[in-house]
Design a protein around this nucleic acid. Structure first.
Lengths: 195, 195
DNA sequence: AATAAATTAGTTAACACTCGCTAACAAAAA
DNA sequence: TTTTTGTTAGCGAGTGTTAACTAATTTATT
């Protein structure tokens, strides 16, 4: 195998790590298997990452990248209502193109053994909640949204997105996620926007 | 340690297995640790279970037990609307009393390595969905519920329950789950029952 | 009721295997 | 010539599981 720059190798390693988790769960992510897939030796992995935890940190950064895309996409929308719609639809459109990322979303066992990873995950989740929360508030001030507890509505939307993605995974990705997204948005239009 | 009947030991072993998963995640469930907690030797575990998979099957049966309780509780209710309310509240009341079971609910990695376990889990999930789905249909026929896609509404309710429990876990069980449940039910009354 | 036989629930020791990670060294690139 | 990316070999620790044996309990027979 030829020599590559650290940046290139790091990307390859994280790509493969995500693939391995996608195919066999986090338990099947070993340095041995990872090295095999990347076609380098195990110690070579350690040239580019401090340890296994560091690799998972790299995976988490892919989530951060997604959040940046998400935020940029949402800010394109004018009305608060459209922002919420696109918050949902963008999730589904992205995951439909990158199935493997759904595994990362649900591999909660990755964080059981490490405080650093757990903290980083909590931070990401909190940031995403804040984003949706601020839009919800904006929409609420304009009187567009149903008069219900804010926190509960936040959990409803996030829980709904998560559940649809879980169903999609368990069905072996057998339906169109973005089509389902449209149906979901329609329902929310009726229920929370009273349209 | 004294001798016990298989039934008693099996219960002890499954209890401890759930506790271990609760405290350190599924990764920390080893036969070694399990035997240590039950205060018997490792091979003694194999007197009561075929293998590790068999132990997890035992954990899954605790979920089945819960479903039986749930179904019995729901059937006590007269109106379809009350059945849905209690479907939610019973989940929260039960989990508040048995925190450890939340870990089982979210330890999806348990099922990554075994087709048998995955199938059993799918079966349990499907049964629970069917239960809620039939009540929803009953409620819908009476014209109590908002006119939205059935499947989506099902995902909304199940996703909401799941998300609240996840938030409770991530907050280290720092709020009253049943109190939150009441707030959730209120919201759903407004949104889907149009009250 | 006492005792022998069979069954069950436990033990210690060890198996083959996988894990994350490192020391020591080689070769390519800067 | 120095730095960077790779290699082979191997470490200590942990994994699920089994073989071989022992002690307690249950059952059957005298």
């Amino acid at each position: 195998m030829s020599r590559l720059s650290t940046e290139q190798r790091q990307d390859m390693i994280i790509d493969e790590a995500i693939n391995i988790i996608h195919n066999g769960g986090y338990q099947s992510l070993s340095i041995r298997e990872l090295a095999k897939q990347v076609r380098i030796s195990e110690p070579a992995i350690y040239r580019h990452f401090l340890n296994k935890e560091d690799i998972i940190l790299g995976i988490l950064n892919r989530m951060v990248d997604f959040d940046h895309l998400l935020e940029r996409e949402i800010m394109k929308q004018k009305t608060a209502q459209d922002k919420i719609r696109h918050f949902i639809l963008f999730h589904f459109d992205f995951l439909e193109k990158k199935k493997e990322m759904t595994s990362v979303l649900f591999a909660e066992d990755m964080f059981d053994q490490s405080d650093i990873l757990r903290q980083k995950l909590m931070f990401i989740i909190q940031k995403r909640k804040n984003l949706l929360s601020s839009i919800l508030q904006e929409s609420s001030q304009k009187g567009e949204v149903a008069d219900v507890n804010h926190k509960d509505l936040l959990s409803l939307i996030l829980g709904l997105i998560r559940m649809i993605v879980l169903e999609w995974r368990l069905s072996n990705f057998s339906f169109s996620l973005s089509e389902r997204g449209k149906s979901i948005v329609k329902m929310l239009d009726k229920l929370i926007f009273m349209k």
